[in-house]
Design a protein around this nucleic acid. Structure first.
Lengths: 343, 343
DNA sequence: CTGAAAGCGCTTACAG
DNA sequence: CTGAAAGCGCTTACAG
């Protein structure tokens, strides 16, 4: 009575069918499948033809059982999920990784570890060898997952420098500090001298590094640092809004703000507008990310572009290399200043 | 010299180790693993203790090889990816599905089929049995993937009604038509009579159904239909903006607009503002989705909430049931009017 | 270059 | 209720 499987998933052809069809042994078929070494051209051709005729597709489970590899990788998100799922960068990263992996015929398993319970289950799953490696997105320090996986010897590449783990874990990151420097120099170049900053969380590399870049440039330029100009947010739009209110209260003479994310900059813009300040005339605003939010907003945001497509491609490259036995590596990619209307 | 794998992935314990540890046969261990039927309480307890002591985790590849199931499902996106990756609903859906699946210990493979080439490869991968079923996100008609997978007998649940496939494919959808009716009734209740509509693409169920709801309510209310009040977009912000410009040109006396997505409504708001119309005083605007954009915008959008958390949960439930042998099913979930400032 | 054979770790009738 | 055994589809030394 079951209609759902009408159409029927008939038993797919195996290596045995291909061997019979090609008139060779199964070993030879397998050799063709695995690179074609030690196979005569004639045999290889016969096998390839047989594969085409039969529509053969390798059974990955059988292969994995014997090789001990899964030929798949995990994309692990350990953020409290709400926030990062709202971050447009996440989509770009996830899509880029999926595509880069697909080019190598490697499936991506999406894993969410928001709660301790999920974390335990996923760590267990990963260390049991069900994926060959992990792309890790987790910017907060104190996240135990990275350390657990590293200790278990699981190939691992983090997005952004994992605070506390130094270079024991591979990572790919944009040059946050340099991007911040570029933006603050740009604001100085506009003649602004009372430049505020809305930082990200200071337990994330982006939070720390972008603030560091801000300080460096001001020091170089001989502009005296003023703690009242430094406020923190958590990368959310709402936190940008309240940070800007604090900033305005503490330093009403502020004439520019470098905001560590476009999402927060959206909030800053709203607060500035409500306070009757014109952007960029009264206060210039610079963001960070070049996310879709940067152009959705009015005035459009001058911001720092992070090379997300390159980041995802590099993460995949480094992970695959590490799975292949190479050592860990850190890759730092340059950012780019994108000038629009807000500064 | 390789540092990457220090820490070492030692060979994990197998069912054989557990059997030895528990003093039973491997068959008995397997029976405990698979539901504990036909196992004495004493044996079950010994096995569970041995599993705990050894830290045993089942090797899914070995299991899959023999059962013919993969115990994993694919999440397949066939949209031209750019658009949907910008859609905030996508994140909610993806997260919900991942979590619902994780609760059943079923990994989710993310699959992107934006190009014909990717489509072919993925179809092949799926029909080869590498996943047990597919959660399909593809709203445009004429998408061949759904039909191919259905024909191959792959368990399949679509998000939204797949146009053209009728009920031969399971799907879960919000009640688009009813949601549209609620919104238009609300606008009528505000005293508006020149109500425009910005539809979605008319080869998507959301495009068709939301327009149908609009027409039904106007007809019921005895308001004469006016083709000049009907314009189409493609769910993007930009298309909303240009649709609103067209609408304003064709029907300058418009006093309300029902927009088929919040993202488009953002664009409509921008166009209205530029044209000097106040919202909601001159023109009331109603959106659809209750996405983050709805509250990010000013004035905050009155909109129709789609129950995305329920949608993802139901998609997973129906897919798992279908993998278990049940017939196809369609699930329609109610929407909810969320009143804010724009209407 | 090629075939025969062992074996990866599991599940599932089959006897008992 | 339980054990012994076959077998899922593949890869990989091992002989030749």
């Amino acid at each position: 009575m079951t209609m759902s499987n009408t159409g029927g998933r008939r038993k797919p052809p195996t290596i045995h069918d291909v061997a019979r069809e090609a008139g060779v042994s199964r070993g030879t078929v397998s050799r063709v499948l695995n690179g074609g070494h030690y196979v005569s051209p004639a045999a290889a051709e016969a096998v390839n033809a047989a594969i085409r005729r039969t529509g053969y597709v390798v059974n990955r489970h059988a292969r994995s059982l014997i090789t001990g590899r899964s030929d798949s990788v995990g994309f692990l998100l350990t953020e409290p999920q709400e926030r990062f799922f709202e971050d447009p960068n996440f989509n770009v990263l996830l899509r880029g990784c999926t595509q880069a992996l697909a080019a190598h015929d490697v499936p991506l398993l999406l894993m969410l570890a928001g709660t301790d319970d999920e974390r335990r289950r996923i760590t267990r799953y990963i260390t049991a060898g069900h994926v060959d490696g992990v792309l890790l997105v987790s910017s907060h320090s104190g996240d135990p997952v990275a350390e657990e996986l590293r200790a278990a010897g699981v190939p691992l590449v983090a997005c952004g420098k994992p605070i506390g783990l130094g270079s024991k874990v591979s990572y790919v990151a944009a040059d946050d500090r340099d991007g911040a420097r570029d933006m603050v120099r740009h604001l100085l170049g506009l003649g602004r001298r009372r430049i505020g900053v809305v930082t990200g969380p200071l337990d994330t590399p982006g939070g720390v590094e972008r603030l560091a870049g801000y300080r460096e440039v001001l020091a170089e330029a001989g502009v005296e640092e003023d703690e009242r100009l430094i406020v923190s947010g958590d990368y959310s739009r709402a936190s940008g809004e309240s940070a800007a209110e604090r900033l305005l209260g503490r330093a009403p003479d502020v004439d520019a703000v470098f905001v560590a994310s476009d999402l927060m900059a959206q909030g800053v813009l709203a607060a500035l507008q409500r306070a009757g300040r014109r952007v960029p005339e009264d206060v210039a605003v610079g963001g960070f990310d070049d996310s879709p939010a940067a152009v959705a907003v009015s005035p459009a945001l001058t911001t720092i572009r992070q090379p997300w497509d390159r980041i995802s491609a590099e993460m995949v490259r480094v992970l695959l290399a590490q799975i292949g036995g190479e050592e860990t590596a850190a890759v730092i990619l340059p950012t780019e200043l994108v000038k629009r209307a807000s500064a």
